[in-house]
């Protein structure tokens, strides 16, 4: 059997399992990932199978987790550290941006630093402060890093495997509110390329670009827009850095309209970059300005207010309507 119906989180577990089986140099480390199996149970069962040396419960210290991962990579290992929550990645920000991202360049390619950081991110899970952040732009802004984020179980499985096998450091951002989203994983899809965007729904009137946890919302918005007579094309970026701008531009050349939907703050964001890049490349194809749907420029609110804050179907539909008003 080459396909299996799995929750997105279990597809990640399986990817880690399969990489650790195939390569003895792959190891996982992080807070509570061993005995407990991670706070989201993503690493459940792995320590039992691979032992405490390869699935390490670390002391609590994000800079230490990423810093020691860099050292292990220098010595030929492929560490897959987990940062427990998006909001706790910042103590490791120095290690990620000044060291992990730069060591290959600093050593003129004498070293490769194949570290894959697993980072559950995003909101709408009813959590208290610092458990609902979308920090992807900080990392995408940094040369030397790759930033990817799956939106389905199949993508999660193959994107994590490709990330671990990749010689560059990868920030693997897991859409935590979609962890329980089930989907078919095709285990024969060995040519999967995680660094190109996927067109999930074809349409002729407007291009809707999204990524990670917002993708199911974008698909639902496209479905709703059909009732208003708009044929919306939906693109899932999958990779934020590198950004597959060609796929987006090819779609915009066809539709003439672009809306980018994300959970992160709009200001200086992935959507901002896409807006600028599309304006530079296909200015004459555009029938309307590129519109961004994202979070307001305030810190993530208390969970009882997050519905006001995280863009949903209606905020995307409002932007689609605005685009057609031009």
């Amino acid at each position: 059997m080459t396909t299996e119906n799995l929750a997105l989180s279990k597809a990640i577990t399986r990817a880690l399992h399969d990489e650790m089986t195939e390569n003895p140099k792959v190891l996982a480390l992080g807070e509570d990932i061993g005995k407990l199996g991670g706070v989201f149970r993503v690493t459940d069962g792995l320590q039992k199978e691979f032992g405490a040396r390869r699935v390490m419960d670390t002391p609590l210290g994000e800079a230490g987790i990423i810093g020691t991962s860099v050292g292990m990579a220098l010595r030929g290992y492929r560490p897959v550290p987990e940062i427990q929550f998006d909001g706790f990645v910042f103590p490791a920000f120095n290690q990620i941006t000044t060291q992990l991202a730069r060591l290959r360049g600093r050593t003129n390619g004498q070293y490769e630093i194949p570290v894959t950081i697993r980072l559950p991110y995003g909101g709408s899970v009813g959590a208290i402060e610092h458990h609902s952040e979308s920090p992807e732009a900080y990392f995408a802004h940094t040369p030397g890093l790759r930033v990817v984020t799956p939106s389905s179980a199949h993508d999660a499985y193959w994107m994590l495997r490709a990330s671990i096998q990749h010689p560059d450091p990868v920030i693997f951002m897991e859409p935590k509110r979609r962890y329980w989203l089930k989907g078919e994983v095709d285990f024969s899809d060995t040519d999967f390329n995680p660094f190109c965007a996927a067109t999930l729904r074809e349409g002729s009137d407007l291009t809707l670009v999204s990524y990670g946890p917002m993708v199911p919302t974008a698909l639902a918005a496209a479905e709703a827009a059909r009732e208003d007579g708009h044929d919306v094309e939906v693109i899932d970026l999958r990779s934020i850095s590198p950004l597959d701008i060609e796929t987006i531009c090819a779609s915009v050349a066809k539709t003439g309209r672009l809306v980018v939907a994300q959970e992160a703050y709009n200001f200086v964001s992935v959507a901002s970059e896409i807006s600028a890049a599309v304006t530079e490349r296909c200015f004459y194809s555009l029938e309307a300005p590129v519109l961004r749907v994202g979070a307001f420029h305030t810190p993530y609110p208390v969970p009882r207010s997050e519905e006001e804050y995280v863009p949903g179907i209606d905020r995307i539909l409002e932007a689609i309507d605005r685009s057609f008003a031009y």
């Binding site: 810093g67 020691t68 050292g71 220098l74 560490p79 290690q95």
Partner: peptide, 20 residues
Amino acid sequence: TVVLAAQVPHAVGYAMALNF
């Protein structure tokens, strides 16, 4: 390494890897 102390966890990770 110019960022003070940033190299120290690398050394520890390398040493852990020697044990591996």
